[in-house]
């Protein structure tokens, strides 16, 4: 189901999701070509969580991502060239080359801090919500994390305090464990936890929890809207678990384009997809599902979709040129920014 938005907004969401997909695919090619920019994580296959979630929030709401942050930065409007420059360690990067792929942030876009430590961001996002609460603003803060973070004690502590103090935070758990959708049928999530249902960890401390299919953009959008409204109405935190089947290219230790770049026609000709990914593209890729839903609701023609896609591909190529042509930071800048305010 599509989010409850007008056509213009829905097309804009498609653009953002396609930007994430194309930008990430290009990033994997850059990693293959080298030089290496270190270990990294891509958002392919989770676009229908992050982009609808952002659309359900206000621009003033705060987002606290993890190592899998690219989709949120692009979704919030970070310049694709500057994000890529950051990952290549260039001076023009979002964080002057001090963050890289794992720690990129954009305070000016309401993404103050990113933590690549599993669970590390969860209490920080909730603390930002505490600040919003005591200042009497109607701002909501979103803690992003994967299923793995529910294995960390810090996540439990943050859930407990957030529930006690009723702070306006949304805990958005992107469960991309391999068979997360299978887990919905009653099995274990593949993450290493004894909780059959991750939401029970939240419920045990009085935080209401919902599960949505992460490929269902409308379900994600609605769950986030409800959670944000509850937070703004002083109703406290919500735990939203969005389940997806992990994109097979993210199964290896390093991301791989195991069957090449996505082609939009796989949305309407699934049999055209490479054998390896035919099931994933047909049933588990939220982006192609979104596109199919747009087409069948006659909100978009195939040709229009292809046109948007080729614009985005050009946009991404411009970002690659920008990042490649950018200079490395001067070595002496390594000594700057230890403290944001002058010390001594």
């Amino acid at each position: 189901m599509l989010p409850n938005l007008g056509k213009t907004d829905l097309v804009e969401l498609l653009r953002k999701m396609l930007l994430v997909r194309r930008w990430e695919e290009r990033l994997i090619r850059l990693a293959e070509e080298g030089p290496s920019f270190g270990h990294y994580h891509v958002y392919v296959g989770q676009e229908t969580i992050g982009i609808p979630a952002l659309a359900a929030l206000r621009p003033t709401d705060l987002i606290f991502p993890t190592h899998r942050n690219h989709g949120y930065l692009l979704g919030r409007g970070a310049d694709p060239g500057r994000l890529l420059a950051e990952i290549l360690g260039k001076e023009t990067g979002l964080n002057k080359g001090k963050a890289g792929t794992l720690h990129a942030s954009a305070p000016e876009l309401g993404i103050p801090h990113t933590s690549a430590i599993v669970g590390g961001i969860v209490p920080i996002a909730a603390g930002a919500a505490l600040a919003a609460q005591v200042k009497g603003s109607d701002q909501v803060s979103v803690a992003l994390f994967g299923d793995g973070a529910t294995e960390e004690g810090v996540t439990f502590e943050a859930l407990n305090i957030a529930s006690l103090w009723k702070v306006p935070v949304i805990f958005l758990c992107e469960n991309n464990t391999e068979e997360a959708l299978g887990a919905a049928a009653g099995g274990y999530p593949k993450s290493v936890t004894a909780a059959n249902d991750l939401g029970n960890i939240a419920r045990s401390v009085g935080v209401p929890a919902v599960v949505v299919d992460g490929t269902d953009s409308g379900a994600v959008f609605t769950a986030m809207k409800v959670a944000a409204e509850r937070a703004r109405a002083s109703g406290g935190p919500t735990f939203v678990e969005a389940r997806v089947v992990r994109w097979p290219g993210s199964n290896p230790l390093w991301p791989e384009l195991i069957a090449g770049e996505t082609e939009l026609r796989y949305a309407w000709e699934p049999e055209a997809a490479p054998e390896l990914l035919i099931r994933w593209y047909r049933n588990q890729d939220g982006l192609l599902r979104y596109l199919r839903e747009m087409l069948s609701a006659s909100l978009l023609e195939k040709d229009e979709a292809k046109e948007i896609d080729s614009e985005i591909i050009q946009h991404v190529e411009a970002a690659v040129r920008f990042a490649r042509e950018s200079a490395y930071p001067p070595p002496e800048s390594a000594y700057l920014d230890v403290f944001a305010r002058p010390s001594q």
Partner: peptide, 19 residues
């Protein structure tokens, strides 16, 4: 509560958001 990593993180997040 007795949750040092939790409430320390809360403090950090609150400081990032203006307190």
């Amino acid at each position: 509560p007795t949750a040092e990593i939790g409430f320390t993180g809360f403090g950090i997040g609150a400081a990032m958001n203006g307190l």
